[in-house]
Protein backbone atom coordinates (compact mmCIF):
# COMPACT_ATOMS: atom_id res chain seq x y z
CA UNK A 1 0.00 0.00 0.00
CA UNK A 2 1.55 3.24 -1.12
CA UNK A 3 0.38 6.81 -0.85
CA UNK A 4 -1.73 7.97 -3.81
CA UNK A 5 0.78 10.67 -4.67
CA UNK A 6 3.64 8.15 -4.92
CA UNK A 7 1.54 5.94 -7.21
CA UNK A 8 0.57 8.85 -9.41
CA UNK A 9 4.19 10.01 -9.65
CA UNK A 10 5.35 6.47 -10.46
CA UNK A 11 2.77 6.06 -13.25
CA UNK A 12 3.68 9.49 -14.61
CA UNK A 13 7.40 8.63 -14.71
CA UNK A 14 6.74 5.20 -16.20
CA UNK A 15 4.52 6.53 -19.01
CA UNK A 16 6.94 9.35 -19.74
CA UNK A 17 9.79 6.83 -20.08
CA UNK A 18 7.65 4.56 -22.25
CA UNK A 19 6.64 7.47 -24.50
CA UNK A 20 10.23 8.43 -25.12
CA UNK A 21 11.57 4.86 -25.24
CA UNK A 22 9.33 3.41 -27.93
CA UNK A 23 10.36 4.54 -31.40
CA UNK A 24 11.24 8.16 -30.89
CA UNK A 25 8.26 9.04 -28.68
CA UNK A 26 7.15 12.59 -29.25
CA UNK A 27 9.33 12.97 -32.34
CA UNK A 28 6.84 10.99 -34.44
CA UNK A 29 3.74 13.18 -33.85
CA UNK A 30 5.86 16.31 -34.27
CA UNK A 31 7.18 14.96 -37.58
CA UNK A 32 3.60 14.22 -38.64
CA UNK A 33 2.60 17.75 -37.62
CA UNK A 34 5.43 19.19 -39.76
CA UNK A 35 4.69 16.92 -42.72
CA UNK A 36 0.94 17.58 -42.72
CA UNK A 37 1.30 21.36 -42.43
CA UNK A 38 3.86 21.30 -45.27
CA UNK A 39 1.09 20.05 -47.54
CA UNK A 40 -1.02 23.17 -46.81
CA UNK A 41 0.84 25.68 -49.00
CA UNK A 42 1.26 22.96 -51.63
CA UNK A 43 -2.53 22.65 -51.80
CA UNK A 44 -3.66 26.28 -51.40
CA UNK A 45 -0.71 28.02 -53.05
CA UNK A 46 2.03 30.17 -51.58
CA UNK A 47 0.09 33.48 -51.56
CA UNK A 48 1.05 34.96 -48.16
CA UNK A 49 -2.26 36.80 -47.68
CA UNK A 50 -4.33 33.67 -48.21
CA UNK A 51 -2.01 31.62 -45.98
CA UNK A 52 -2.25 34.24 -43.24
CA UNK A 53 -6.02 33.71 -42.91
CA UNK A 54 -6.07 29.90 -43.04
CA UNK A 55 -2.65 29.19 -41.49
CA UNK A 56 -3.48 29.46 -37.76
CA UNK A 57 -6.71 27.38 -38.01
CA UNK A 58 -4.86 24.71 -39.99
CA UNK A 59 -2.15 24.58 -37.33
CA UNK A 60 -4.94 23.78 -34.87
CA UNK A 61 -6.56 21.10 -37.02
CA UNK A 62 -3.26 19.38 -37.77
CA UNK A 63 -2.20 19.46 -34.12
CA UNK A 64 -5.52 17.83 -33.15
CA UNK A 65 -4.95 15.06 -35.69
CA UNK A 66 -1.36 14.59 -34.47
CA UNK A 67 -2.71 14.14 -30.93
CA UNK A 68 -4.99 11.35 -32.20
CA UNK A 69 -2.00 9.35 -33.42
CA UNK A 70 -0.67 8.52 -29.99
CA UNK A 71 -3.93 7.50 -28.35
CA UNK A 72 -4.28 3.97 -29.74
CA UNK A 73 -1.59 2.34 -27.59
CA UNK A 74 -2.29 4.37 -24.44
CA UNK A 75 -4.32 1.68 -22.65
CA UNK A 76 -4.08 -1.16 -25.16
CA UNK A 77 -0.55 -2.14 -24.10
CA UNK A 78 -1.58 -2.04 -20.41
CA UNK A 79 -4.61 -4.21 -21.14
CA UNK A 80 -2.56 -6.77 -23.10
CA UNK A 81 0.35 -7.22 -20.71
CA UNK A 82 -1.72 -7.20 -17.53
CA UNK A 83 -0.49 -3.84 -16.17
CA UNK A 84 -4.07 -2.64 -16.18
CA UNK A 85 -5.08 -5.38 -13.72
CA UNK A 86 -2.24 -4.27 -11.45
CA UNK A 87 -3.32 -0.63 -11.73
CA UNK A 88 -6.88 -1.68 -10.83
CA UNK A 89 -5.61 -3.49 -7.73
CA UNK A 90 -3.75 -0.41 -6.50
CA UNK A 91 -5.33 1.46 -3.61
CA UNK A 92 -5.03 4.71 -5.58
CA UNK A 93 -8.24 5.51 -7.48
CA UNK A 94 -8.04 4.58 -11.15
CA UNK A 95 -9.21 8.10 -12.04
CA UNK A 96 -6.00 9.54 -10.60
CA UNK A 97 -3.89 6.97 -12.42
CA UNK A 98 -5.61 7.83 -15.72
CA UNK A 99 -4.99 11.50 -14.95
CA UNK A 100 -1.30 10.71 -14.42
CA UNK A 101 -1.16 8.83 -17.73
CA UNK A 102 -2.83 11.76 -19.47
CA UNK A 103 -0.41 14.20 -17.84
CA UNK A 104 2.53 12.08 -19.02
CA UNK A 105 1.09 12.05 -22.55
CA UNK A 106 0.62 15.83 -22.42
CA UNK A 107 4.23 16.27 -21.30
CA UNK A 108 5.66 13.80 -23.81
CA UNK A 109 3.55 14.75 -26.84
CA UNK A 110 1.32 17.78 -26.19
CA UNK A 111 4.11 20.05 -24.99
CA UNK A 112 6.46 19.35 -27.96
CA UNK A 113 3.55 19.73 -30.42
CA UNK A 114 2.60 23.12 -28.94
CA UNK A 115 6.21 24.31 -29.08
CA UNK A 116 6.61 23.04 -32.65
CA UNK A 117 3.53 25.07 -33.59
CA UNK A 118 5.51 28.32 -33.23
CA UNK A 119 7.86 27.87 -36.22
CA UNK A 120 5.11 26.14 -38.21
CA UNK A 121 2.64 29.02 -37.62
CA UNK A 122 5.30 31.57 -38.62
CA UNK A 123 6.05 29.56 -41.78
CA UNK A 124 2.31 29.66 -42.53
CA UNK A 125 2.48 33.48 -42.37
CA UNK A 126 0.96 34.01 -38.92
CA UNK A 127 2.30 37.29 -37.44
CA UNK A 128 5.27 36.63 -35.15
CA UNK A 129 3.55 38.65 -32.42
CA UNK A 130 0.65 36.15 -32.48
CA UNK A 131 2.78 33.04 -31.92
CA UNK A 132 2.82 33.24 -28.08
CA UNK A 133 -1.00 33.13 -28.11
CA UNK A 134 -0.98 30.22 -30.57
CA UNK A 135 1.51 28.24 -28.46
CA UNK A 136 -0.28 29.03 -25.18
CA UNK A 137 -3.61 28.14 -26.79
CA UNK A 138 -2.24 24.83 -28.04
CA UNK A 139 -0.86 24.00 -24.58
CA UNK A 140 -4.46 24.28 -23.32
CA UNK A 141 -5.84 22.71 -26.49
CA UNK A 142 -3.60 19.67 -26.09
CA UNK A 143 -4.89 19.27 -22.53
CA UNK A 144 -8.45 19.30 -23.95
CA UNK A 145 -7.60 16.89 -26.79
CA UNK A 146 -5.82 14.48 -24.45
CA UNK A 147 -8.56 14.79 -21.82
CA UNK A 148 -11.21 13.70 -24.34
CA UNK A 149 -8.64 11.41 -25.97
CA UNK A 150 -8.11 9.26 -22.87
CA UNK A 151 -11.88 8.62 -22.84
CA UNK A 152 -11.83 7.47 -26.47
CA UNK A 153 -8.68 5.42 -25.89
CA UNK A 154 -10.22 3.72 -22.86
CA UNK A 155 -13.46 2.92 -24.74
CA UNK A 156 -11.52 1.38 -27.65
CA UNK A 157 -8.77 -0.27 -25.56
CA UNK A 158 -9.96 -3.81 -26.26
CA UNK A 159 -10.47 -3.26 -29.99
CA UNK A 160 -7.81 -4.50 -32.40
CA UNK A 161 -6.60 -1.66 -34.65
CA UNK A 162 -8.69 0.73 -32.58
CA UNK A 163 -7.02 3.85 -33.97
CA UNK A 164 -9.74 4.70 -36.48
CA UNK A 165 -12.46 3.91 -33.93
CA UNK A 166 -10.82 6.28 -31.43
CA UNK A 167 -10.78 9.00 -34.08
CA UNK A 168 -14.51 8.52 -34.80
CA UNK A 169 -15.38 8.52 -31.09
CA UNK A 170 -13.25 11.52 -30.17
CA UNK A 171 -13.58 13.93 -33.11
CA UNK A 172 -17.09 15.21 -32.11
CA UNK A 173 -15.60 16.12 -28.73
CA UNK A 174 -12.81 18.08 -30.40
CA UNK A 175 -15.39 20.50 -31.83
CA UNK A 176 -15.57 22.99 -28.90
CA UNK A 177 -11.78 23.27 -28.26
CA UNK A 178 -11.15 23.58 -32.03
CA UNK A 179 -13.75 26.38 -32.29
CA UNK A 180 -12.33 28.43 -29.43
CA UNK A 181 -8.70 27.52 -30.06
CA UNK A 182 -8.75 28.48 -33.73
CA UNK A 183 -10.80 31.59 -32.86
CA UNK A 184 -8.22 32.66 -30.27
CA UNK A 185 -5.41 32.08 -32.79
CA UNK A 186 -7.24 34.01 -35.52
CA UNK A 187 -8.02 36.87 -33.09
CA UNK A 188 -4.36 37.06 -32.08
CA UNK A 189 -3.26 37.02 -35.74
CA UNK A 190 -5.61 39.87 -36.65
CA UNK A 191 -4.97 41.75 -33.41
CA UNK A 192 -8.62 41.88 -32.32
CA UNK A 193 -9.55 41.32 -28.66
CA UNK A 194 -11.48 38.12 -28.01
CA UNK A 195 -12.58 36.03 -25.06
CA UNK A 196 -12.14 32.80 -27.04
CA UNK A 197 -9.02 32.07 -24.99
CA UNK A 198 -11.05 32.00 -21.75
CA UNK A 199 -13.62 29.68 -23.29
CA UNK A 200 -10.78 27.45 -24.54
CA UNK A 201 -9.51 27.30 -20.96
CA UNK A 202 -13.00 26.23 -19.90
CA UNK A 203 -12.99 23.42 -22.50
CA UNK A 204 -9.58 22.25 -21.29
CA UNK A 205 -10.70 22.28 -17.65
CA UNK A 206 -13.85 20.32 -18.47
CA UNK A 207 -11.93 17.76 -20.54
CA UNK A 208 -9.25 17.25 -17.91
CA UNK A 209 -11.86 16.90 -15.17
CA UNK A 210 -14.40 14.68 -16.96
CA UNK A 211 -12.22 12.67 -19.39
CA UNK A 212 -10.40 10.63 -16.72
CA UNK A 213 -13.70 9.93 -14.89
CA UNK A 214 -15.25 8.40 -18.01
CA UNK A 215 -12.01 6.67 -19.00
CA UNK A 216 -11.63 5.02 -15.59
CA UNK A 217 -15.23 3.78 -15.70
CA UNK A 218 -14.60 2.34 -19.17
CA UNK A 219 -11.34 0.68 -18.10
CA UNK A 220 -13.09 -1.06 -15.20
CA UNK A 221 -15.48 -2.63 -17.72
CA UNK A 222 -12.57 -3.52 -20.03
CA UNK A 223 -10.88 -5.49 -17.26
CA UNK A 224 -14.04 -7.30 -16.10
Amino acid sequence: MTAPFADVAAVFRRDLKLAWAAGGGAATPVAFFLGATTLVPLAVGADPRQLATIGPPLVWITAALAALLVLERLFQADLEDGSLDQLLLASTPLELIVLAKGAALWTAVGLPLAVAAAPIAIALQAPVAATPVIVAGLLLGMAAFIGFGVLGAALAAGVRRGGVLIAILVLPFFAPPIIFGAASAAAAASGTPSDAFLLLSGCAAAAVALGPLGAAAALRFQAE
Binding site: P172, A206, G214, A218
Partner: peptide, 23 residues
Protein backbone atom coordinates in the same frame (compact mmCIF):
# COMPACT_ATOMS: atom_id res chain seq x y z
CA UNK B 1 -18.94 -4.97 -22.30
CA UNK B 2 -20.04 -3.27 -25.53
CA UNK B 3 -23.25 -2.18 -23.79
CA UNK B 4 -21.43 -0.64 -20.80
CA UNK B 5 -18.83 1.12 -22.95
CA UNK B 6 -21.48 2.44 -25.34
CA UNK B 7 -23.45 3.73 -22.33
CA UNK B 8 -20.43 5.73 -21.15
CA UNK B 9 -19.99 7.15 -24.65
CA UNK B 10 -23.69 8.02 -24.85
CA UNK B 11 -23.52 9.98 -21.56
CA UNK B 12 -20.37 11.82 -22.65
CA UNK B 13 -21.99 12.67 -25.99
CA UNK B 14 -25.07 13.97 -24.18
CA UNK B 15 -22.85 16.49 -22.35
CA UNK B 16 -20.97 17.37 -25.52
CA UNK B 17 -23.95 18.22 -27.69
CA UNK B 18 -25.19 21.27 -25.73
CA UNK B 19 -21.56 22.41 -25.43
CA UNK B 20 -21.15 22.20 -29.20
CA UNK B 21 -24.50 23.95 -29.61
CA UNK B 22 -23.42 26.92 -27.50
CA UNK B 23 -19.89 27.07 -28.88
Amino acid sequence: RAARLAAILCLAGFINIPIVRFS
